[in-house]
């Protein structure tokens, strides 16, 4: 379970151009939920996501993960949390260049100290799960956008995280490929019972999730359950 309590995020603190990006955010996400976050550009979605992913620290407020507050944790402890419990999927894929698809998927396991053989085996399984097993020896620059994102999703699942965070994962993809990626997230949520939080500008995709949170100017202006799920077209 993720919990944000009175979270505030400011930039340029103390300077004349001080900027409050998140104002008093309160949010609870239960295990196994599929939540979408929508809102205009600059409304603070990514900022909130980075705090949820333990990549960033809030200026004020408490973020706790499974009841454990992260405020007093060291950078190394946050690294461990990201490594073991959180999977990231980025809009721009962020695969490591010059590393094969397989090596990219192995990376989180490398950082948690898993042995070479076990890593390799698990990475192959994950690539098979996203339908990329026949491309595992390819370099990122030899893959299409959709293929890269599937590798990135496989990588996000490497250490069996309970939470998967995706910041506009379909933003750089066409509708068809985007739908395929969305199907993967649905599968991850439904079949593997992982919490998925998805930022999207695409209302239709948001409607496929269980819960839609809308941000405006750093505040949550709506948080609603979606009763009728399913693809419109």
């Amino acid at each position: 379970m993720l919990e944000l309590k009175n979270i505030v995020k400011k930039y340029f603190i103390g300077e004349p151009n001080e900027l409050t990006v998140l104002r008093n955010i309160n949010l609870k996400v239960l295990d196994g939920e599929f939540v979408s976050i929508v809102g205009a550009s600059g409304s603070g979605k990514s900022t909130m996501m980075n705090i949820l992913g333990a990549l960033d620290r809030p200026t004020e407020g408490i973020y706790s993960l499974d009841g454990q507050s992260t405020g007093s944790m060291t950078d190394n402890q946050l690294s461990e949390i990201r490594n073991e419990r959180i999977g990231f999927v980025f809009q721009t894929f962020n695969l490591i260049p010059r590393n094969t698809a397989l090596a990219n998927v192995e990376l989180p396991m490398f950082y948690c100290g898993m042995g070479k053989k076990a890593r390799r085996e698990r990475a192959k399984e994950l690539l098979a799960l996203v339908g990329m097993e026949d491309r595992m020896d390819h370099m990122p620059n030899e893959l299409s956008g959709g293929q890269k994102q599937r590798v990135a999703i496989a990588r996000s699942l490497a250490n069996n995280p309970s939470i998967v965070l995706a910041d506009e994962p379909t933003g750089a993809l066409d509708t068809k490929t985007g739908n395929m990626v969305m199907d993967l997230f649905l599968k991850i949520n439904e079949e593997e019972k992982r919490t998925v939080i998805l930022i999207t500008h695409n209302e239709e995709l948001a409607l496929e999730t269980q819960r839609m949170i809308t941000l405006r100017d750093g505040e949550i202006i709506s948080d609603k359950r979606i009763s009728e799920r399913g693809r419109v077209s």
Binding site: L55, E80, F88, N94, I96, L107, P108
Partner: peptide, 8 residues
């Protein structure tokens, strides 16, 4: 990216 994936 490496840090996001858990590199210390």
């Amino acid at each position: 990216t490496r840090k996001a994936l858990g590199a210390k």
